[in-house]
Structures are given as C-alpha cells and as structure tokens.
C-alpha cells in the first residue's frame, strides 16, 4: 500500500474493537466476500459512489440478495447492509459515513451485518485531523447526519460483561480496496 501510511494502524485499531478487516483487490472480490459472510435481504443505498461503481449490480451479479423496495419495509432485521464511507480515522479504527440520505442510515442501523468499503487514500491520521472535513461538512444551513462507526454495536449493561450486537449491527466488516475514492466529501 504505497499511498497511505495510516492503513496498518487503522486496520489494527479497527480489529481491536471487534471489526473484521480484509484487504481485497476489487469490488468483485468484495461481492464474493459479502456472499460468503452474510445471507438474507441486503440493503445497498444508492449514493454517489455506489452509482459510480455500480455497486448494486456488482453485488447482485455475485448472488447477493440486493433489496429493491422501500428500505423501511425490508423487515426489522435485514441480513446485511453494504455501504461506502466518506473517510476513516486510524487512531480509533473508525469509519465515517455522511448519512443524511435516509437509506444510508437504514442500511447501517437495521441489518445484522454491516459491510463498509474503505479506500486507503481516505484514512486520516486521527480524530483531530477530521476537524477540517467535519467542519466543512457542517458548513451552511443544509441538514446533515454524520455517523462515526467504530466496531460493531456493543453493551456492558448487564454485569459489565462486554456483549456484542445490542441494537445495531452484530458484525462490522471493513473491506479495504484501492481506487474507490479519494474524496472525503463523497459517499
């Protein structure tokens, strides 16, 4: 990985909080990965990047059950959600998704598993480095919904025992692929 010095730190930190991190060659491999690691209805929101890379078709061609209707009617527990992200932060192993479009939110909160595609180019050194893009995203009067996601949903509310998969996805799979995006403001 010539173009990002923060990649190995990002992968290490994401794994430490329970994310599955895999480096893949291309989106076709990602589609195979999703087929192998999940089942059931899969929410794939139409966003700038997913349209650009024709992600829904790539996934469907590999056999993923890409959901076609209104995401709110995909059931209480869809099998999976597949999204891109705007950028990532190496020091905490976090992916950041501008989720103003409701389908991005539904694809990342309801499913049992969340697969997120990350280009090494958009991994920032740390949370402090995110101040610039975060400030820019929030400039102006447009409503915005930005989600930091760090590992799967978790709780320790019963006897302080760490338990994965409380209300959000039980699994977070981070698929690292080069050449997806170098734009922090695109998802």
């Amino acid at each position: 990985m010539p173009n990002n010095t923060h990649l190995s730190r990002f992968m290490e930190m994401a794994r430490r909080v329970g994310a599955e991190v895999t480096q893949l060659e291309n989106l076709q491999d990602a589609a195979k990965y999703v087929v192998t690691n999940s089942s059931g209805t899969t929410l794939v929101p139409r966003t700038a990047l997913s349209e650009k890379h024709d992600l829904r078709t790539v996934l469907a061609d590999a056999g993923v059950d890409v959901y076609d209707g209104d995401f709110r009617k995909a059931g209480h527990f869809p099998g999976a959600g597949v999204t891109f992200c705007n950028f990532a932060m190496a020091d905490t192993g976090t992916v950041v998704l501008e989720s103003t479009a409701e389908d991005v939110r539904l694809s990342t909160t309801l499913p049992e598993k969340h697969f997120v595609l990350v280009d090494p180019e958009i991994i920032l050194e740390d949370n402090l480095a995110a101040a610039v893009p975060m400030t820019k995203i929030h400039t102006g009067n447009e409503p915005k919904f930005v989600a930091y996601v760090t590992g799967p949903s978790r709780t320790a509310d019963i006897e302080r025992v760490l338990t994965i998969g409380c209300h959000g996805p039980r699994e977070l799979h981070i698929l690292v692929i080069e050449g997806l995006s170098s734009d922090l403001y695109e998802i």
Partner: peptide, 23 residues
C-alpha cells in the same frame, strides 16, 4: 467513561434530515 478510545457510535445530527420520503 469506559476506557474505550471511542464508542461504537458518535452521531452528529444537524437539522431536519429526510425521513420516509418527507422531512
């Protein structure tokens, strides 16, 4: 709070985002 570097989610919400085809 819990010795985590960051919680699973940090959610930044500004204004009236889209909801079920409406605002």
């Amino acid at each position: 709070a819990t010795g985590q570097l960051l919680t699973s989610y940090v959610t930044w919400i500004k204004g009236t985002v889209p909801c079920d085809g409406k605002t």
